[in-house]
């Protein structure tokens, strides 16, 4: 479960909150809203990259508000993928193992497994500069999954993709989330994408989040 509990944030004249909503355990939550309404800020607060003015965030019943970003059990996929540009796809996928002190040989099986799951086995020795938009997002997803997170936060991961790649990735996201039983919060301003993926749909407008009815 992902829970935002009375989150407030402000920067200059921009104010957000109080924001409270839950994405139930193992479900796919979509957060919609106009550009600049604070969706990314909420994602970054959940990931521990921004400190809220007040309020708490919870993952699977645990208050993670005071934990460092790396100890929250969240896999984060930002809008542009944010791959590590000097590393190959293999090194991006093995990054978590490197942090944990594992040798490349020890992390190889999990890297191969992830690459197989995401259909990027043929890209392992390429650098991010030589990947297409869809390939970059697959690698970013793989890198996030390598940490075996309890929740996924995806910040407009499909926004800059062509129609065909978009459809492929929608199917892949659904498959991965279901097969791993992850709770996901996906940010988008694309209504059709939201209806294709969401178990729960939320709208962020005027600094507050409200549930949104939709026909799946």
């Amino acid at each position: 479960m992902i829970r935002f509990d009375k989150i407030r944030w402000r920067a200059g004249t921009f104010e957000l909150g109080p924001v409270s909503f839950d994405v139930p355990f193992g479900k796919y939550g979509m957060l919609m809203g106009r550009t600049g309404c604070g969706k990314t800020t909420l994602a970054e607060i959940l990931c521990g990259l921004r400190v809220p003015y007040s309020g708490r965030v919870w993952i699977n019943g645990q208050d993670i508000s005071d934990r460092e970003p790396g100890k929250r059990g969240i896999g984060y996929v930002p809008q542009d993928g944010a791959l590590f540009p000097t590393m190959t796809v293999r090194e991006n996928l093995a990054f978590v193992s490197r942090i944990r002190g594992l040798k490349p040989a020890a992390s190889a099986p999990s890297v191969e497994r992830l690459a197989g799951l995401l259909g990027i086995s043929h890209l392992l020795d390429r650098k991010p500069a030589h990947l297409s938009g869809g390939e970059r997002q697959r690698v970013a997803l793989g890198r996030a999954l390598a940490a075996e997170p309890s929740a996924l936060v995806l910040d407009e991961p499909l926004s800059a993709l062509d129609e065909e790649t978009h459809a492929d990735l929608v199917a892949l996201l659904k498959k991965v989330q279901r097969s791993l039983g992850l709770t996901a919060l996906h940010i988008t301003h694309h209504r059709q994408e939201a209806c294709q993926l969401a178990d729960h749909l939320f709208l962020l407008a005027d600094g507050a989040v409200s549930p949104l009815e939709f026909a799946p």
Binding site: G48, E68, P69, G70, Y76, A82, V96, I99, R100, R143
Partner: peptide
């Protein structure tokens, strides 16, 4: 340089 890769590295467990 985009600050996002560094932010992602922190969510993965880097200081």
């Amino acid at each position: 340089l985009s600050p996002r890769p560094e932010a992602v590295a922190m969510t993965l467990g880097c200081s």
